[in-house]
Each structure stands twice: as structure tokens, then as C-alpha cells.
Simulated assay, not measured.
Amino acid sequence: MYPDTVELVEVSARDGLQNENMVFPTERKIALIRHMIAAGAKRLEVASFVRADRVPQMADAEAVIAGLSALPEDIVTIGLVMNKRGALRALETAIRQIGAVCVASDSFAQRNQGQTSMESVDVAIDIIRLARAEGRSAQVTIGAAFGCPFEGEVDPAHVVAMAERLAEAEPSEIALADTIGVAVPQHVSDLVSKVREAIHPIPVRVHLHNTRNTGIANAWAAVQAGAATLDSALGGIGGCPFAPAATGNIATEDLLYMLDRSGMATGFDLTRTIEAAQWLSTQMERGLPAMVSRAGPFPCSALQPTKMTKDGI
């Protein structure tokens, strides 16, 4: 049985932009977020609280969140944090959910956060508890859950053990991230199933990259295995600046097309999402990896390629 609904988290304003050479001005990030809210997004990664010298695209996290202060109550903005310092910065803003991160391999955790894999779990637990004590929602992502760019294969038993330890802090959800885009559907199905069983009733979210063109197939496998939520980025933009060759996220419009045609509601409007992708392509001055915003929906609608300007649709 497939679910009637699938929740999507729009990550273009954070994971989508963090690996870009072109620095997106604050007002353009806010415009991107508002485009996606207009298209139906209810949960969005909007910033990460990290060192500006390491991730220059995220240097304006506080300004972006300040520019979103008038959002409706049902919109959940997510701020990614890697350590307690970042969490304290985030808690000084109006961000509505804290996203902690730990990493499934020692080599990647050392390069990304200067600690071992299990030390990164302990830090994430502290962040979750701090956020909850301050009255904020908090969730956590296990990065490189399907493979490490430095060590190769990651033991699924280790990922399950991490998830079980994280569950003790009662995050709102635990996400499994294919940070470098190496997963295949069977791998996704197996790991999602094992983690779901281990942490029930905490829901599982899945964050996928399309580095090796398996992203959409992996998303389907995740849904079949019971993942409650999927991450995606408008246009398929994104990547990890700390992982070699970790290219873009699965594209929101491509994922919507698959889910909509399969009878699964997301709350997004595909036409408006395609229009937003066309706008984003203009802002970035290049074509984007997504397929559906180029080919269009099916059955064919009145949607035609929109003449875009740098000021928007």
C-alpha cells in the first residue's frame, strides 16, 4: 500500500544554494522561499548557521530569517546547525525548527565537524535537547548514511545504532541523507525499513542527491518503505561543499510529477513550481538539472515557457 500523502521539505534556499559559486543576495533568497511557499511548500530549509568563511552562501542566515518574519503560522522554517554555537545563533532568530546534523563515518565527520561519527551524535543530541528546552522543534539528519566519499561503504548497522541513540533525545524526526548520491533503491528500502523499525514512532525523513541519476528511483523506494517525508530542491540544484562530486538534490518538480501521477498528494501546485523553476533558472543565468520544468507536465496544460526577468515572474 502506498501512502495517500507525502510531505516534502523544500531545501533549495539552503542545500540548493550552499555549493554555488554565485552568491545569491539576501533579497533573492527570500524571493525564492516565497516562490516556493506560493507553490505550496509548508516546510523549508532556509539557512544554515555555519562559519561564513567555510560556506559563504550562508553568511546572511540571520538576515534571511528576519526577512521572513511575517510568514503564516503553518509555515515551518528550518535552520541547519552543526554545533552548539550554531544552535545558539539560530535560537536568537525566529527560526521555527532546528535541524541538527551528525555523520555516519569517522572520516567525513572529522572533515565536516572535527569529530568522530559517534561524537557527532552526542553533539546532535545536545542540540536537540537545547532547542526543546527553548521551546523550539528540533530534528536531526544522519549525513552520509548510504556511503562516505572517503571510506566508501557505510555499515547499515552503524546507522541504525546512531538512529537509536538519537531517538533517546526525542527529535521530531530522523532523516537519512544520501549526501554523495550513491544509494540505489534496494539500499534505500532496506535502510529506511530498519531505521523505521528501530525508532518507531519517530518518523523517518529521507534526503537524496541525484549524483548518479538514481535520486527519483530512490525516492520511490523510500516512500514504499514508509518514509514520511522527502527533501527536494527546486530545479535540482545543490550539493555538499565538503564532499567531492556531491552534485544536486532531487528536483522538486520532478518529484512532484512522479508523486502526483501516482496519486499521492503533496500540497504543491506543479504548475506554480515549474514557474518558480523557470524564474530560478533566470536568476542563476543557466539551465537547471531538473527535467519536468523543461519538458512540462502531462497531460499538457496551458503552461507555456514564461518570459522571465531577474526581478521575477
Score class of each variant (00 low, 15 high):
residue 256 L to Q: 06
residue 313 I to S: 15
residue 275 E to I: 09
residue 14 R to Y: 09
residue 63 A to P: 04
residue 206 V to Y: 11
residue 211 T to G: 01
residue 119 E to V: 08
residue 177 A to Y: 14
residue 73 E to S: 15
residue 55 V to T: 06
residue 7 E to T: 05
residue 241 P to A: 03
residue 31 A to T: 03
residue 15 D to I: 05
residue 197 E to D: 15
residue 86 G to Q: 08
residue 292 V to G: 05
residue 164 E to P: 15
residue 40 G to V: 01
residue 258 M to Q: 14
residue 131 A to C: 07
residue 132 R to S: 13
residue 214 T to E: 14
residue 56 P to T: 13
residue 83 N to L: 07
residue 77 T to Y: 12
residue 35 H to D: 15
residue 255 L to Q: 06
residue 213 N to P: 00
residue 266 T to Y: 06
residue 289 P to C: 08
residue 145 A to P: 02
residue 309 T to F: 01
residue 122 D to Y: 05
residue 218 N to M: 04
residue 75 I to H: 12
residue 191 L to D: 10
residue 65 I to T: 07
residue 258 M to W: 10
residue 96 R to L: 01
residue 174 I to P: 09
residue 264 M to V: 03
residue 158 H to I: 12
residue 5 T to M: 11
residue 50 V to P: 03
residue 271 T to N: 14
residue 102 C to Y: 02
residue 278 Q to W: 12
residue 235 G to T: 01
residue 284 M to S: 04
residue 41 A to D: 10
residue 124 A to L: 06
residue 203 P to H: 08
residue 97 Q to W: 00
residue 115 Q to I: 07
residue 256 L to C: 03
residue 26 T to I: 05
residue 133 A to S: 15
residue 4 D to T: 14
residue 84 K to Q: 13
residue 282 T to S: 12
residue 101 V to N: 06
residue 163 A to G: 03
residue 133 A to E: 14
residue 204 V to W: 04
residue 206 V to N: 05
residue 63 A to L: 08
residue 220 W to G: 13
residue 211 T to R: 06
residue 118 M to L: 13
residue 43 R to F: 02
residue 231 D to Q: 04
residue 21 N to Q: 12
residue 138 A to W: 02
residue 154 V to G: 01
residue 85 R to T: 11
residue 124 A to Y: 08
residue 46 V to H: 06
residue 114 G to C: 07
residue 152 G to F: 08
residue 264 M to D: 01
residue 200 H to D: 00
residue 92 E to D: 15
residue 195 V to S: 10
residue 20 E to R: 13
residue 217 A to E: 10
residue 293 S to K: 02
residue 292 V to Y: 08
residue 229 T to R: 14
residue 142 I to L: 10
residue 170 E to N: 09
residue 295 A to V: 10
residue 228 A to R: 15
residue 299 P to C: 13
residue 304 Q to I: 06
residue 274 I to N: 08
residue 261 R to D: 07
residue 11 V to T: 14
residue 189 S to E: 14
residue 263 G to P: 01
residue 167 A to D: 11
residue 168 E to N: 09
residue 198 A to P: 11
residue 36 M to L: 13
residue 154 V to C: 03
residue 246 A to P: 04
residue 257 Y to A: 08
residue 64 V to H: 02
residue 147 G to I: 02
residue 305 P to V: 08
residue 201 P to M: 11
residue 246 A to V: 07
residue 220 W to C: 09
residue 75 I to G: 09
residue 45 E to I: 01
residue 137 S to A: 12
residue 180 I to W: 02
residue 137 S to M: 07
residue 156 P to M: 11
residue 156 P to S: 03
residue 120 S to C: 05
residue 26 T to G: 13
residue 207 H to G: 12
residue 124 A to F: 11
residue 306 T to Q: 11
residue 96 R to F: 05
residue 57 Q to E: 04
residue 302 A to S: 15
residue 179 T to E: 09
residue 289 P to G: 11
residue 65 I to D: 03
residue 276 A to Q: 04
residue 201 P to T: 10
residue 24 F to Q: 02
residue 72 P to Q: 00
residue 198 A to Y: 14
residue 293 S to A: 14
residue 9 V to G: 01
residue 168 E to G: 07
